[in-house]
């Protein structure tokens, strides 16, 4: 009995001392946290995508609570629902989130363009890009090894016929793929207006035509047909100004090579 007591008592005493010290320390040295912070953080989706421009959801939550005037509509994946909740917690006016979705500006799949070389290196676009700008005949086009697919938190990007496609309804517009694509083919467009030029080849029309049957040849037909003047051909490739575009579909059926389509 005594043996057990001599073992139990010191352990209990040390345990109690440790507990007492911890309780006192946590009371004395408690750090005051803004009670809104955990609530704000809970509202955010937690994807840590960085679309808001802060270091992850924690960073955005901290900025919202600490710096008054931080816009509540920066979380694009969260869309209006998150913005509404944030404005309620922080007691500011609701601001509309402009939903965006990614689109790959290339339509050079294996039926439209050909490979120059047989690439057998690392399965990564950024690695393939280092070797003479990739395997394809078109130096501007999709490398088709799926770096964007791997980085997508929503699994909204898939490869088909050696070309990356974005499943627009699933895309939350975080923009991680935009930063990843070594050819800069992906951009975010307003989710409601969904006409896009699926080519990024900046060579002259004849050169483009030689490497890809789907490429934009810069014929400016779309410029003329657009009723609101939203399309301009810059650097031999058509560009849509989404501020002006009314999504009337005038250009989509009219394009010579069919590279302006609804996405």
């Amino acid at each position: 009995m005594i043996d057990i007591l001599t073992a139990v008592v010191p352990v209990v005493i040390i345990g109690l001392i440790c507990a007492a010290v911890l309780v006192v320390a946590s009371k004395i040295m408690a750090v005051k946290e803004d009670e809104r912070l955990p609530r704000v953080r809970e509202c955010l989706p937690g994807a840590n995508c960085g679309a808001c421009g802060f270091a992850g959801c924690d960073g955005y939550a901290k900025a919202l609570v600490e710096n008054e005037g931080t816009p509540t509509n920066l979380c694009i994946p969260g869309a209006d629902a998150v913005s509404l909740k944030l404005s309620e917690i922080l007691g500011v006016e609701f601001e509309d989130v402009i939903e965006q979705a990614a689109v790959v500006h290339c339509s050079g799949d294996c039926n439209a363009t050909e490979d120059n070389v047989d690439y057998r290196g690392i399965e990564s676009c950024s690695a393939a890009k280092l070797i003479f700008g990739g395997k394809g005949a078109c130096g501007y086009g999709c490398l088709g090894l799926g770096d964007c697919m791997n980085v997508c938190p929503q699994d909204a990007i898939y490869l088909k016929d050696g070309l990356a496609h974005v499943c627009r309804p699933e895309c939350v517009g975080c923009g991680l793929c935009v930063k990843t694509c070594p050819n800069g083919l992906i951009s975010l467009t307003p989710a409601v207006e969904d006409v896009a030029v699926l080519c990024s080849n900046k060579d002259k029309g004849a050169l483009t035509r030689k490497v890809c049957t789907n490429g934009c040849i810069g014929c400016k037909k779309c410029e003329k047909v657009c009723p609101v003047g939203a399309i301009k051909v810059k650097n031999n490739v058509a560009e849509i100004d989404y501020e002006k575009c009314v999504c009337c579909d005038a250009c989509t059926g009219y394009c010579t090579t069919g590279c302006i389509i609804r996405v």
Binding site: V11, I14, G15, C18, A19, V21, L22, A25
Partner: peptide, 9 residues
């Protein structure tokens, strides 16, 4: 016991 409490502290 002691190490755990100490690290918390």
């Amino acid at each position: 016991l002691v190490i755990a409490a100490l690290v918390q502290l």
